[in-house]
Design a binder for these strands. Structure first.
Lengths: 244, 244
DNA sequence: GAGTGGTCTAGACCACATA
DNA sequence: ATGTGGTCTAGACCACTCT
């Protein structure tokens, strides 16, 4: 485990109900007990039950319908192991535990941001930024080519040693920064020279590209980056649920 | 407007605060008034304020940090007009109001599902399914090639006339079905013969592919589909926020 | 009409960040 | 120590779906 987290009541309730769904105590495509019954059983208020069910609904395990009841959805058949879940802030290391991750640094520069980058990072024109190109290698196979910009003032002491490991760990555990959120844009694109050189992409191999802005819990933008994935190695998943 | 919806208190509060952020009454990268002050001002309970702020946080307008306060994030610089938002259940028509949408039907068949499709739609092997291939054309340009499977029992009376218009409207307004949620998988892929023929894709043009399962509010799966987008025409956006 | 989930309140306590 | 947002309660009313 990463950190010891004190669980709240609704998290404990959610965990128990999740187990019941997985174990089949609550069958897929069937109604669960209603919120009042669950509140009585767990000896908590109905609102606490509702929060627990909200959590499970966001995971796609159940669907709540006002006036009707709560239906168990169960497992989703197109999920796969190499999907990156939509809400993943952890670095690659957390998504590929027990696998071998290497990083090759292609370039590492500092300069002033141009107009476009000033807007994306929301910084002044005289705020220096790091520009990093890094190749992430999973079990010996080139997987992602990252192109990252970060304000120097937010990431003091960044060096090649850190970049060979996990930048995420450095930000999180050494600098004690916390991520607030991220906005991602996903598209397909043609391979460029760098992709061909480093990702071993063929001239016609499409690239799955992510463009993203990440901000901290205090609202400052910490990163603007594009990352280019080999099309045959990665896909991305999103769960949309009504009424949230 | 599509439907007249009675707004709840927290939706009204959210709307007012959203306006204040847009108008600049609450400045980006600054703290908003705290929840108690807002509760007093709007004369509602603090929980109602919290629900309103949760809504805005999910939109990426603000970020809440326990022990600190609520920070206004403001507009996100990499958003663009042709992005499809992550939570879009509306058909294309709702996303492109005032633009000309046509549909060309490439094939329309009925048959029994194979093992794979039985799992994806969660139906028995003797439940007939529609199989539809449709080209969606926006303002004269081929945009999306859809390949859709739907159980016949859930969509009675489907015909070519409806498919030329909006299937979404037929499901929603004629059959009064309601979508519960969707699970989407996004990847880049190589163009196949159909893409080249109908999307006017070149042999090397990558395709942005969506694979999705959609379920109704009663938990039944209504659709399994793959849709293939011209890489230069569409991108997809996702907002991730911590603590939800 | 009966039963479901959604909203809302007033008040309480807790976890957390800053000073 | 103070103030923030997060959780939790008990009870109430509402909107919705099905019979």
């Amino acid at each position: 485990m990463d950190e010891i987290m004190k669980k709240t009541k609704y998290q404990l309730v959610a965990e128990e109900i999740r187990q019941r769904i997985i174990k089949g105590t609550y069958q897929a495509k069937q109604f669960m007990p209603d919120q009042n019954a669950l509140a009585k059983e767990f000896d908590v208020s109905r609102l606490t039950i509702k929060k627990a069910l909200d959590t499970l609904a966001r995971e796609g395990l159940i669907y709540k319908q006002s006036g009707l009841g709560t239906i168990v959805l169960g497992m989703i058949p197109i999920k796969a192991a190499n999907d990156s879940p939509a809400n993943a802030f952890d670095g690659m290391s957390k998504q590929h535990v027990g696998e071998k991750i290497e990083s090759k640094i292609i370039s590492f520069e500092v300069h002033f941001p141009d107009k476009d980058l000033q807007a994306k990072l929301d910084i002044a024109k005289d705020e220096p930024v790091y520009e990093i190109e890094r190749l992430r290698i999973l079990n010996g196979d080139p997987l992602i080519l990252e192109h990252t910009f970060m304000p120097v003032k937010l990431v003091p002491g960044l060096n090649e040693d850190i970049m060979h490991q996990s930048i995420y760990d450095y930000l999180h555990h050494k600098l004690h920064l916390k991520f607030g959120g991220a906005y991602r844009k996903i598209r397909a694109s043609l391979p460029d020279e760098l992709d061909i050189k480093y990702l071993n992409a063929q001239k016609i191999d499409p690239i799955l590209e992510f463009e993203e802005i990440v901000w901290l819990n205090n609202g400052e933008n910490i990163e603007y980056s594009t990352s280019r994935n080999r099309y045959d190695k990665r896909s991305y998943t999103v769960l949309d649920v009504n009424n949230f």
